[in-house]
Design a protein around this nucleic acid. Structure first.
Length: 214
DNA sequence: TAGGCCATCTGGTCCT
DNA sequence: AGGACCAGATGGCCTA
């Protein structure tokens, strides 16, 4: 996450101390869609510079703005600020929609039962992580079996994040890893419906087995 | 009714 | 300056 390389915490000003924006401006910011109205009605905080801009323009601030340029009126400034905020909100909404579209696309390629409830965002990410890990292991095992046909390699030696056993194949298909560890080692008991069927060899999940989840 | 999930708004920070 | 990204806050909806 680039924006906070030093881990600088965001300073939250207690809402009680915040300067309320004019109610009219807040209401104007409500989008025309069926968006929840509430957050826009919340009071907001302004920096000292912003506050001074609202109250009246100091000589210093005016100079910074560009010398002879006549400072905009309070209403013009407030209008501009609202316009910028509105545009930023639109962009943010759009960004989140794009993110959700990507998540939907990801859900689309994950093996789930048709009648399964839609995976939540966190479940989708964890499941995808586990799924990729499982596929990677499958390829690795397949590769290994071509080189050394006998005996089969125990899963515990394959670098499983959980140091698992043969039975851990089932856990790969759990939509949720334990405790947010992003490790594909969730317990089978928790999601029995997603247990991995045993492959003929008892080790390799074949394409046929994958299709069992669709 | 509490808790989980989600959409949205918002201000801060970084980048172009 | 403006856009992208992020995290916090808030309220709505749904379910156990």
């Amino acid at each position: 996450m680039a924006p906070h390389p030093l881990g600088a915490p965001t300073i939250q000003v207690p809402r009680e101390t915040q300067q309320p924006f004019s109610e009219a401006s807040d209401n104007e910011m409500l989008s025309s869609k069926s968006t929840p109205p509430s957050p826009t009605l919340m009071p907001r905080v302004y920096s000292e510079a912003e506050a001074s801009e609202c109250r009246g323009t100091s000589r210093k601030v005016r100079a910074r703005r560009g010398g002879r340029n006549r400072p905009k009126s309070d209403s013009a400034l407030s209008k501009q600020r609202r316009s910028r905020r509105k545009k930023a909100n639109d962009r943010e909404r759009n960004r989140m929609h794009n993110l959700n579209s990507a998540l939907d696309a990801l859900r689309g390629v994950l093996p789930t039962f048709p009648d399964d409830a839609k995976l939540t965002k966190i479940e989708t990410l964890r499941f995808a992580h586990n799924y990729i890990w499982a596929l990677t292991q499958t390829l690795r095992i397949a590769d290994h079996s071509f080189c050394v046909p006998e005996p089969p390699v125990p899963c515990g030696e394959l670098g499983s994040p959980g140091g698992g056993s043969n039975g851990d194949w089932g856990s790969l298909y759990s939509p949720v890893s334990q405790a947010g560890s992003m490790s594909p080692t969730a317990s089978l008991e928790e999601f029995p419906s997603l247990q991995m069927p045993s492959s003929p060899s008892g080790l390799l999940p074949s394409a046929l087995v994958f299709s069992d989840f669709l």
